[in-house]
């Protein structure tokens, strides 16, 4: 059992990081900490993906000297997925930060529970 964990230590680390990020995004009251949690969560998935595509002792998947033997290179698809994922995560992070700025301008706090209370008071 334990040797599975030590063999796949990158995946284990990625999943622990994912858990940390997920809990932060869910449980933190501060919007900025939530956004940091979101980024930890997404980065953990990229670590997981990148480690999956990496094969020890193989080269970067760029053809040099006309060598097209696929067994010499690592799998390039996970890297492509990571790039796409980063683009997605950057855009949602930007949107979340924008919402946070809007909320801060209006309610002068970053605490989402406090904002909820203030909004409720505003409409009573």
């Amino acid at each position: 059992m334990l040797h599975y964990l030590s063999e796949n230590y990158v995946s284990v680390a990625a999943m622990i990081l994912f858990g940390i990020g997920f809990c932060n995004l869910l449980l933190q009251r501060n919007m900025i900490k939530k956004i940091i949690g979101l980024n930890i969560m997404d980065t953990a998935v990229y670590l997981f993906l990148a480690s999956m595509g990496y094969i020890r002792d193989r080269l970067v998947p760029i053809i040099v000297n006309g060598d097209t033997d696929a067994s010499k290179y690592i799998n390039p698809i996970p890297s492509g997925l990571v790039l796409t994922g980063i683009v997605v995560s950057v855009s949602v992070t930007a949107l979340m930060l924008g919402i946070t700025v809007k909320l801060y301008e209006r309610y002068h706090t970053l605490d989402i529970d406090e904002i909820t209370m203030l909004v409720r008071k505003e409409h009573e």
Partner: peptide
């Protein structure tokens, strides 16, 4: 409105949790 922005924040938080799980 203030409550629209708050609703959006809550929507985004839950949605991002969901899409994190989908991505994994």
């Amino acid at each position: 409105w203030g409550r629209n922005i708050l609703a959006t924040a809550k929507y985004m938080i839950m949605s991002l949790l969901g899409s994190g799980l989908v991505l994994v």
